[in-house]
């Protein structure tokens, strides 16, 4: 585990960053995937399943990130996040609603007093290809409109070109622009491709001040997988041990079924443990997942499936 004194910081050369990041322990891809797959065979039943389903619901960042998003659609999503099951108030609310910056105002309005946070993507999501000034404006606008959480994307191009300092400084600048808002840093693991890259990008983000590290935008071919999420969990565990600061993890994209969600909770439970088993430290970025969780919850309580006509379509 790296010593705190050896961490590069603002202004460190790319060579210093390279020496540090490439000095992190390597990741054996086969071993990582096997571990994730094996934890996926855990059999979660009865009360443990009930706990997992409710916890998963409470961890969802209910997300809509489409060009066709409208205020009406965002308001519908907000209503769903605040009370996922209109006829059953025992269902927990989602953690947040995640939208584009121009719709933050609508979401803030709709969610006032519900306890559901508004999260906004920023920094030229999803590609991140814009000048830093534009990204800062994007971020400040979202924060000014009332977003409590900002989901930024890193500059994958700079990372892959070896310009680690640029990636670090950009994250640090966005962190500053966030003010009191919570910063989630999207690594876009599907574009970093190797697990070694993912671990390095994760450390860059954590050292630059990320409150959360997040797997993906949901907009590329490979999004959250059990293996890349496991890797982020191992990184936040090591970062806590090295620095004393706890960082959250968000798995986003491609998690559609309750079965999948439960597998992610098992990963959390058996690697970083219960300290991360709350919406404060672990999130699931998803849209269709919520309805499947609601149907499974109903099944667990009543013994019968309600079917898709008994959950709301948003």
């Amino acid at each position: 585990m790296p010593d705190t004194a050896t961490f590069p910081g603002p202004g460190a050369s790319n060579a210093a960053w390279r020496a540090f990041l490439h000095g992190l322990p390597g990741v054996d891809a086969v071993g990582l995937q096997e571990r994730a797959a094996r934890l996926g065979t855990r059999s979660i039943k009865e009360s443990a399943k009930g706990f997992a389903i409710d916890t998963a619901i409470s961890m969802i960042d209910l997300t809509t990130l489409e060009g066709a998003d409208t205020p009406g659609r965002v308001r519908a999503l907000c209503a769903k996040a605040a009370g996922p099951e209109p006829t059953d108030r025992s269902v927990p609310r989602a953690a947040a609603v995640c939208v584009y910056p121009d719709l933050v105002g609508t979401a803030v309005e709709a969610l006032r007093g519900t306890g559901v946070a508004v999260a906004s993507v920023a920094t030229a999501f999803p590609s991140g290809r814009a000048p830093l000034e534009a990204k800062l404006v994007d971020t400040r606008a979202a924060v000014a409109a009332g977003a409590a959480e900002i989901d930024m994307v890193i500059d994958r191009g700079a990372f892959l070109a070896g310009d680690y300092l640029a990636v670090f400084e950009e994250i640090a600048a966005i962190r500053e622009a966030c003010g009191d808002a919570h910063l989630k840093v999207i690594l876009e693991t599907g574009e970093l491709v190797t697990y070694d890259n993912i671990r390095r990008a994760c450390w860059l983000a954590m050292l630059a001040g990320a409150d959360f590290v997040k797997t993906s935008t949901g907009k590329v071919a490979v999004n959250a997988t059990p293996a890349n999420t496991l890797l982020l969990l191992l990184a936040v565990r090591d970062f806590l041990a090295a620095t004393g600061r706890q960082v959250g993890v968000k798995a986003a994209g491609g998690i559609r079924t309750s079965k999948d969600a439960v597998k992610y909770l098992v990963l959390v439970n058996e690697t970083v443990g219960p300290a991360w088993l709350t919406p404060r430290w672990f999130r699931l970025g998803a849209s269709s997942l919520l309805n499947d969780l609601l149907m499974q919850r109903h099944k667990l309580r009543t013994g019968s499936y309600s079917g898709p006509d008994y959950v709301t379509v948003d």
Partner: peptide
């Protein structure tokens, strides 16, 4: 961070 308390996610 929260200490490793009693695990609420004990498998049935």
């Amino acid at each position: 961070p929260a200490p490793r308390a009693e695990n609420p996610f004990a498998y049935s």
